[in-house]
Amino acid sequence: MIYPDSKIVLEVRGLCATVNGTEILKGLDLTVRRGEVHAIMGPNGSGKSTFSKILAGHSAYEVTGGSVMFEGQNLFDLAPEERARAGVFLAFQYPIEIPGVINSQFLRLTYNTVQTHRGKEELDPLEFDDYVREKMKLLEMSPDFLERSVNEGFSGGEKKRNEILQMAMLDPRLAILDETDSGLDIDALRIVANGVNQLANKDNAIVLVTHYQRLLNYIVPDYVHVMEAGRIIKTGGKELALELESRGYDWVGVEHKAVAGAVA
């Protein structure tokens, strides 16, 4: 929801980045304020996922220009784990499997690590068990999730729910959901979206990275951005997503070029 005068969470200016020498982001601008839900849409290869990984600090990407301020701080001054502790959360498109590491132990370590850095109390295993079970209800997860290895052998839907569970636990300032709808059947999509909606509040911001409009039926964005060739070329309200759904992406690019040409 858009709140007048709410503080800026994320301010991206002219962001450029490469992977293995190939330029992926070419001057991306974006401003996200507390309380808002943004959707970034665009065709495959437009740089959506790259953008989300750069915000989280993946080492495969090199930032070659521009700036990103997070809550008034230069994001690139922070190591990936420091960003997470400061409140940047990325729900992975493909959550990583960690064989042998028990989910409950992993969840507790991440929860306690982040809590400690925020000057809050850690939870012992019993307290944490109560805490996490309560959060799991939000996502209609069965308790046996806790005893399995992290993401190992999880279905697509289970992995995504495990991501949103962590979002619920870690209470981020900025949650970036990278293609969270991919690989979800309609029931799982509803559950995940419902979870995200309950977590959205006036103090945090959510960026949904998605290829399809489908997710936006459940999580209604305040802004929809269209990304192409490494930058945002159009921004609109939630109705823009519906237009993209019916007309595809091509017209946006054509229109953008025409506008750019007229300005030149």
Binding site: S59, A79, P80, E81, F92, P95, I98, T113, H117, L170
Partner: peptide
Amino acid sequence: EDQLFYFAQRGI
């Protein structure tokens, strides 16, 4: 790297 990045993204 990907496993370590996943941990890092969770503050570890």
